[in-house]
Design a protein around this nucleic acid. Structure first.
Lengths: 343, 343
DNA sequence: CTGAAAGCGCTTACAG
DNA sequence: CTGAAAGCGCTTACAG
């Protein structure tokens, strides 16, 4: 009680009349400690509000009980808000960490600069979760380097064969397929796809491939003129849609690669005096909270962020535990709302 | 290179032909190391991808270079999303931490359970940032305990006299005052206030006090029938508005204590066949991203999250550095959009 | 300018 | 069941 500063296990040892290692054993629940002694030690520890020094114990155990979340943004993204989808991922990752008794270090990165991925090198974290879309080609080398360095990491994103490391991602192909099929069932035939469709953005590319597959199943061919690049921001979606309309290409639906793109596109349609869904049906991807609030409410593909967070954390912990771990894709769910429902 | 596992400062010492302390001095930029020796050491460290072990150095320095963000939610809140306002705070806090070379531990808490505030006790963090609204009376005792334990912490929220610890918050009184004045200038006279107005929710209470002050300046008295409790969710705002309408109280404006409440209220108004702003003007508070996207766009009070994050981090670091630190309130800005503009 | 020594607080073989 | 000893990797007075 009269100890200055924080109590240590040695302080407790003195008060309990035992050696310091015995205190350590008692606190860690070792079975080879006399029950009475243990009780006495635990009581004193509680009275002193003693907490094991994590620096000392991590140093000794070579294990931090901490994971790091590296969130990186595309530098082409405007400074505004982060994709709300990732907020929901952050929430589920935090909860999954708590469930597994892990603490979570969070860091926002710029893709442009070198990733500050040395949390593990400095033993501050046992592994890293990578979150954020960007140019995949740019990040691939870095991922490769992480693998070579033996860094433990999992990333959120398309799980494609031959990728460096472990990826957890939604079944983007299925999502693109299902939502396009839905549009076709609504009678749409001139469906524009807004979003990058190159290997630089594998998630979007997979959604586009699913889109094309669905078209083909209905005997339709994908037209290059109906695909227009966009990144995941409202501004980009709005601009892409304006360009599309300016080209005069006749369309009856927009299949956007993300909800933010879709919402930007709806704004452009409104400005052009077109009604959603009567003149043009619109769909998104992600099911961010905004999707349900927007008017008309947005039909979209829901990603299972809860399962995603759990899988990311569990696989990372398995990796840290030296188990073999595979990439995995997570099923998605079509959510039909007003923006796609025609007569 | 042929060293198994991670390189240590001792490995570098061997390779550089110096003692381990010299390596430590060189890496920390001590001026009393020969320039050539320093260069050699730094080169070798780089080649080995050496990173100082933070557990060892924190243990020795008694300083973790890490802050913890405790985010707590009101248990009465539905499981849905977190108040988007806090996402923006999270972003600015993360950036401020990076700026000050601090790592950030993030943890979501339930108000109901005991705060897991022992990051500092375990020396994992040097101080704590508390973020989240809840019943202030419930948290007050816990804050008091933190102060008694000598925990370094700052909290986001109303900065009121006599509070335990340091608080950084918006000037809620001014915000409530300004937005009400704006409504009055638009000709509104029957203004309902949606949000708690008790000392259990000091931020809302301050907004309400500002609201009342503005009314009085215009020779109007606050009417109890025009205030209705609500917490910061759309659902709560919608319900509060429905109740209000059901009571048949004539109103020409709703001054909501937060954007989410306002958005819920707008939904209730729409369902009741009332037009915003023609029949009822609506205002919010926070300026979350949704506020600008919603239709009609929401007039609101913008909180300066960027400055807030900076202040929270800077004051906490000052506190850790044993400086005297005061609470502070941050100016807010009225943002006029469509939802309040009458003819 | 540099090295030998001590110590941060813990955990775990190793003896008893 | 318990203690004495060693060591995790670093930083910093203390000598030189």
């Amino acid at each position: 009680m009269t100890i200055k500063g924080k109590a240590t296990s040695l302080d407790i040892a003195h008060l309990a009349g035992v050696s310091q290692p015995t205190v350590s054993r008692a606190l860690r629940g070792s079975p080879m400690v006399n029950a009475e002694t243990r009780e006495r030690i635990l009581r004193i520890a509680r009275e002193l509000n003693y907490k094991v020094d994590k620096n000392a114990s991590s140093l000794r155990l070579r294990n931090a009980g901490t994971l790091a979340l590296l969130f990186f943004e595309d530098p082409t993204n405007d400074d505004s808000l982060i994709n709300p989808f990732f907020h929901s991922m952050l929430g589920s990752i935090t909860r999954a960490c708590a469930l597994h008794g892990q603490d979570l270090l969070v860091s926002f990165q710029q893709l442009s600069t070198d990733w500050q991925a040395d949390y593990e090198d400095s033993n501050k974290a046992d592994g890293i979760i990578l979150l954020g879309y960007g140019d995949y080609h740019e990040s691939r080398d870095r991922l490769q380097r992480l693998v070579e360095q033996g860094t433990h990491f999992v990333r959120w994103g398309a799980a494609l064969p031959g990728q460096p490391g472990v990826s957890i991602g939604s079944d983007n192909f299925q999502g693109g397929h299902d939502i396009t099929t839905h549009l076709l069932q609504q009678g749409c035939r001139r469906i524009a796809f807004l979003g990058h469709a190159s290997s630089h953005y594998p998630e979007f590319q997979e959604r586009y491939r699913g889109h094309v597959a669905a078209l083909q199943e209905h005997g339709l061919a994908a037209e290059a003129a109906l695909q227009h690049d966009a990144i995941t921001t409202e501004a980009s979606g709005q601009e892409a849609c304006q360009t599309l309309l300016a080209r005069g290409e006749p369309i009856d639906a927009i299949c956007a690669a993300s909800d933010l793109i879709a919402i930007g596109a709806m704004r452009a349609l409104r400005e052009a005096g077109l009604r959603v869904p009567q003149d043009v049906a619109v769909t998104g991807f992600d099911d961010i909270p905004l999707a349900a609030s927007v008017s008309p409410a947005l039909t979209t593909v829901q990603q299972d962020t809860k399962q995603a967070g759990q899988l990311l954390v569990e696989r990372l912990l398995a990796l840290i535990g030296r188990q073999a771990v595979d990439s995995q894709s997570i099923p998605v769910k079509l959510v039909v709302r007003e923006s796609s429902q025609r007569g």
